[in-house]
Design a binder for these strands. Sequence first.
DNA 1: CATGAATGAGCATTCATTCAT
DNA 2: GATGAATGAATGCTCATTCAT
Lengths: 209, 209, 209, 209
Amino acid sequence: MPKHQKQLSADHQALVDQGVVNAPDSAKGRLLQAAATLFKEKGYERTTVRDLGKAVGIQSGSLFHHYPNKEAILRAVMEETIILNTELMKAALSQNNDPAEKVLALIRCELESILGDTGAAMTVLVYEWRSLKEESQLEILKLRDIYENLWISTLIEAKESGRVVMDPAILRRLLTGALSWTVNWYRQEGNLSVEQLAKMALTLAIKPN
Amino acid sequence: MPKHQKQLSADHQALVDQGVVNAPDSAKGRLLQAAATLFKEKGYERTTVRDLGKAVGIQSGSLFHHYPNKEAILRAVMEETIILNTELMKAALSQNNDPAEKVLALIRCELESILGDTGAAMTVLVYEWRSLKEESQLEILKLRDIYENLWISTLIEAKESGRVVMDPAILRRLLTGALSWTVNWYRQEGNLSVEQLAKMALTLAIKPN
Amino acid sequence: MPKHQKQLSADHQALVDQGVVNAPDSAKGRLLQAAATLFKEKGYERTTVRDLGKAVGIQSGSLFHHYPNKEAILRAVMEETIILNTELMKAALSQNNDPAEKVLALIRCELESILGDTGAAMTVLVYEWRSLKEESQLEILKLRDIYENLWISTLIEAKESGRVVMDPAILRRLLTGALSWTVNWYRQEGNLSVEQLAKMALTLAIKPN
Amino acid sequence: MPKHQKQLSADHQALVDQGVVNAPDSAKGRLLQAAATLFKEKGYERTTVRDLGKAVGIQSGSLFHHYPNKEAILRAVMEETIILNTELMKAALSQNNDPAEKVLALIRCELESILGDTGAAMTVLVYEWRSLKEESQLEILKLRDIYENLWISTLIEAKESGRVVMDPAILRRLLTGALSWTVNWYRQEGNLSVEQLAKMALTLAIKPN
DNA sequence: CATGAATGAGCATTCATTCAT
DNA sequence: GATGAATGAATGCTCATTCAT
């Protein structure tokens, strides 16, 4: 049943090739994608392992050959997304030099991850945090720190260049909220492109030159 | 068992007296407060009716004398909060005339509701939306529309006065995210007051004069 | 609230006056009537004490001032009906001398009790027997024996007179079933009167002269 | 644990082979048999799913792998019985030609089903009707109509042959009551055989030749 | 690897009964 | 007598997880 599969970005494809993340069309990849979608739509607690099984065409008992328990699936959804997006952000930063351009690149990356293919997983990352057991939270927090450090160091750089006024830590937090909330209202089909939205978000943070 | 009870604001007390919302020290009021706290901390699904009963000192079966089912408790938590905060915002708007001051008043109100006593309920409103059945969602949406209209009309006024540049609808959404996200990081005990935070948030929206 | 109250038969009224059964318009009488109706319609188990209270306009807790528990209400419904119908049958027998006429009188009495005002209670007597605790069953069985003895002795008399062929005990049982089942199909409004039905039932038992 | 299993009749076995009804020694068949017995003895409402589980040696939760809810078990009990007895009646009719013999065959069939192995289920069919939700009742009524049509058409035939006097519809109803009531008094161990009882019941309906 | 029946702890909800007012 | 909030045991049902096949 060869569905039309959207082409992966070159950066994403490279990460698949290196084994950093699962290929979206592999068995595990499809499970994680389905899980992200269901967890976003119904919530982790209300999604049963039978739902998950049905979504990928196997019996619920067979899921446990791939992951030891339901929570591990949630954790894998989150891990893969952070890792993928961290790498995509690194690649984007390396292609820009101007501090304001770098901030815009990060905003664009984050919006694309929230509003694009990994959007469901990004939402799960925010909304299902409490469903992780503490041990898993700590593990994910490590990955999140790496991700956030890219942001903070970029904003510090922008502040030093005079383009940012607010305290970088607080600015990042206000931006995090503003961007992650877009999942609740932004619709791709409207007449506001992600690029336009990114530029509008940039004006929250950066003084016009 | 007379606990130390924080004094209600005059506006809040008036609403209690009018029967618009339950008194926080009434049986129903204490249940809703406990429910908001538990729903925030553990999530609606993971909070059992036994948890709720224990939190207010009654058996789980007795809860059903006050609310017909668990979902009705969630719904009441949400309804009360929106109604209360809508009224508090109305009162705050009526005390300010300058468009920028009005926007600041709304930001302050929203931050106080998110970071203060009704913070748990506000968080529940965002995070447990999916746990409401559709019928309840529609009911709450009506209340939310009234609340959001206060925001939108105030931002339109500010734009007309030249202090706001961005489209009001988009600005409101970016602000909604930025403000609601504060619950995840702002700590009262730190050295950033809510008033300071409100002013910083204002700079996202409003051009310096 | 003086509802139009159907006139009691003279025999029934006499029993009320003697205190043998509750007056149908007394507090207890109305409760038993409502209970019979609800127990018939929904079954004893599915009828809650709240249903009973609502039907007579009091709170459920107040029922327990009249009867010590729910089962006692069921038992009272049954007792009253058997006692009443036993007395009505005695009166009817005393007004007939011919053996066949006597059998017809009993059939008529039983049909009237099943299809008339006490029909709900008669149905309950059959369908809710298992809901009585054993002690109550034994008590009711005593009353039932008196009732059945009227039947058996009348049928024996009819057999001795040659009008009945079958063993009286078996005949009574077959008739019991045939008559009690009428509650499931006979409708007063149709074009078959109870009297006609009684005569048809008689032909099951009695040879034409 | 090979219990002594009564041999199925050839007709019954054929229906099992065709998949029309569950084999009495299959998992589902044993559950339905146990359910029928418990529902008859204690009533549907008073029978808990834990009772059902215990009766077939599984946990109550496991019942829900076979039937989606308790009511579906009740419904299956009823459906299987009607279907089985309809087929057995068809077979019996096809082996008799004389109208009176055909009526006797139906009476015999019905008595055997009431007093034999499916007796519990037949009782449940009568006594627990109200416990079915309306949708299920309609479904069962369709099956019941087929069953009753066999009776009515046979009685019409008998009336046309002059052996029956009463209106067939009314006669069927009186007979239904008389026969179904036998469950409350007939005991196999007594000195009245089912065949003798069937012949006595026939005399209610049919004039001696 | 996959199945699917079974587990068993846990859940929301019901309801007869009690009792302070 | 009547109220109605509270009790607490019991109920039908769910579901992640196990495991023999």
